[in-house]
């Protein structure tokens, strides 16, 4: 470390952990990513926990394919579960491989979110759709 100098015992342990992580990364498979080189820190990492194993980038609160996000998160814990419903609606339905259950927007209910300009304020205005 050249920019930070550990002063107390805890800082010395963190510095040692970082040096070991760098060493492992240098001797590893050459892939980049993960939090160890400080460039990418996976967002779903629990901030209080130890550095996580490197893995693919997954958006905040989302989960691996076999771990439904409302039961367990990508670490198998409960700290990074899917976000509350107003977020699920747009994050999962528009951008996620995990299919959110939403109405048929092409044919049956094209305007079902028409009155919902900002989900965090207007989620009550999302239409109820009956098949």
């Amino acid at each position: 470390m050249t920019h930070l100098r550990p002063i107390n015992q805890k800082a010395a342990r963190i510095a040692q952990g970082m040096a070991e992580a760098r060493h492992r990364a240098g001797a590893g498979n050459g892939r980049t990513g993960g939090g160890e080189d400080g460039r990418v820190v996976a967002l779903q990492d629990s901030p209080a926990g130890p550095p996580q194993q490197e893995g693919p980038h997954i958006p905040l609160g989302c989960s691996f394919i076999f771990l439904p996000g409302w039961e367990a998160d990508s670490n198998g814990g409960a700290a990074g579960l899917c976000q509350p419903v107003e977020r699920d609606l747009f994050d999962c339905h528009l951008g996620c491989f995990w299919p959110a259950q939403v109405p048929d927007q092409l044919n049956h209910a094209p305007d079902w979110t028409g009155k919902c300009a900002a989900a965090q304020k207007d989620w009550r205005k999302v239409d109820l759709i009956f098949p």
Partner: peptide
């Protein structure tokens, strides 16, 4: 963590 680090000018 309660770690204490001294910072250089950049940090």
């Amino acid at each position: 963590s309660a770690a204490v680090f001294a910072l250089d000018d950049t940090s």
